[in-house]
C-alpha cells in the first residue's frame, strides 16, 4: 500500500481518480488529432484511413509514406529552406536585440527615452495590417521570391530587445561596481558579466525565433514564388493541393515531418519554453 500512502498527500482518493479521468479525456482531445496524424502516416498503401473499415492503429506499420514524400516532393529542399530561414532569424534576433537590450538597461544617455518610444510604437501594428506595404518595400528592394526578402522584415523584433533589457536590469549593481573597480571597460563588462547572466533569456529568444520562423506561413506565402525556395509550411500546403494530396498518408507524413523537429526541441529544452511564455507576456 505504499503507493496509496504516497498518493494520500494529493487529496481524497476519489477526487484524485476523477481528476485523472478528466485529464485523460482532455488529453484525448488535445493530442488525439496529432496521434491520428502519426498513426495514419504509418499506414501501408492497402490500409483504409477513412470509413468504417479504418482502424486507428496501423496493422503493418511502414515508413512508405515518408519515403514517398521525399521521393515525389522536394521535401528535403523545403526543410533546408526552412532551416536557412531559422538560422538567419535566430542569428539576427539574438545579436542585435542583445546589444540594444544592454544599452537600454543603462541609464543616463541622451536619446534613451526616444529610442524606447520607437521600440514600443513598432509593436503596435499587427503584421496583417502592414503586409501590403511590407510587400511593396520588399518588391522595391528586388527581394520578391528571395529568402532574404522573407527574412528581412522579421529579422529584429522590439519585443526581444525588451526581453533582453529586463534580464540585464536584473543583474545586481554590485557586480558591475566590482568590475568597474577592476578597471574593466564597457565591452569587457558586457562580455564578462552581462552576457553570461543573460544566457537564459537568450535561450528564450532563440527558441521563440526558431519556432516563429519554422511555423510561419502567410509572409513566405506572399513573398515566395519558386518552388525551390518554398519553406516547409509553404511546400506542405502546396503538396496537399497537388495530386499527392489525394493520399492522406503522404500529407500526414509531411505534417509529421514539420512538427517533429519542434517537438524534439520542446522535449529537450522544456523549461525554456515555458519561461518564454512568461517573458512574452511582458509584451
Amino acid at each position: 500500500m505504499r503507493v496509496a500512502a504516497r498518493l494520500r498527500g494529493y487529496g481524497r482518493p476519489r477526487e484524485l481518480v476523477v481528476r485523472y479521468v478528466v485529464l485523460t479525456l482532455v488529453l484525448a482531445l488535445m493530442v488525439g488529432p496529432l496521434l491520428w496524424q502519426l498513426l495514419s502516416s504509418l499506414k501501408g498503401d492497402g490500409e483504409a484511413i477513412f470509413g468504417d473499415a479504418a482502424g486507428l492503429i496501423p496493422r503493418e506499420p511502414t515508413l512508405e509514406a515518408y519515403q514517398t514524400v521525399f521521393d515525389q516532393a522536394p521535401m528535403a529542399r523545403y526543410m533546408l529552406n526552412s532551416l536557412i530561414m531559422c538560422a538567419l532569424t535566430v542569428t539576427s534576433q539574438v545579436i542585435f536585440p542583445t546589444l540594444a537590450g544592454y544599452m537600454m538597461s543603462r541609464q543616463g544617455w541622451r536619446g534613451r527615452k526616444a529610442v524606447y518610444a520607437v521600440l514600443i510604437v513598432s509593436m503596435i501594428f499587427p503584421f496583417e495590417s502592414i503586409m501590403v506595404s511590407l510587400f511593396m518595400m520588399v518588391r522595391d528592394a528586388g527581394l520578391v521570391d528571395n529568402l532574404i526578402g522573407v527574412w528581412l522584415p522579421g529579422a529584429i523584433a522590439a519585443v526581444n530587445v525588451l526581453i533582453m533589457r529586463a534580464t540585464f536590469d536584473a543583474v545586481p549593481d554590485e557586480v558591475e561596481d566590482a568590475a568597474l573597480l577592476d578597471g574593466a571597460n564597457e565591452w569587457q563588462r558586457f562580455t564578462k558579466i552581462y552576457l553570461p547572466a543573460s544566457v537564459g533569456a537568450m535561450m528564450v529568444v532563440i527558441i521563440n525565433s526558431f519556432i516563429a520562423a519554422w511555423d510561419d506561413f502567410l509572409w513566405p506565402f506572399i513573398v515566395l514564388r519558386s518552388e525551390n525556395l518554398f519553406t516547409l509550411t509553404l511546400g506542405l500546403s502546396r503538396m496537399a493541393e497537388s495530386s499527392l494530396g489525394y493520399d492522406v498518408r503522404i500529407v500526414m507524413a509531411g505534417s509529421v515531418i514539420s512538427i517533429a523537429p519542434i517537438l524534439i526541441l520542446f522535449i529537450v529544452l522544456q523549461r525554456w519554453f515555458y519561461k518564454g511564455v512568461a517573458e512574452g507576456a511582458v509584451k
Partner: peptide, 22 residues
C-alpha cells in the same frame, strides 16, 4: 499532461490545419 496540452501550440498552423482538414 501539461506538456501534452501544450503540444498543439508548437506545431505550425499549416501542419495541424491539414490534420483537422482530414
Amino acid at each position: 499532461f501539461r506538456s501534452a496540452f501544450y503540444t498543439p501550440v508548437l506545431a505550425s498552423m499549416v501542419a495541424v490545419g491539414l490534420v483537422w482538414q482530414n
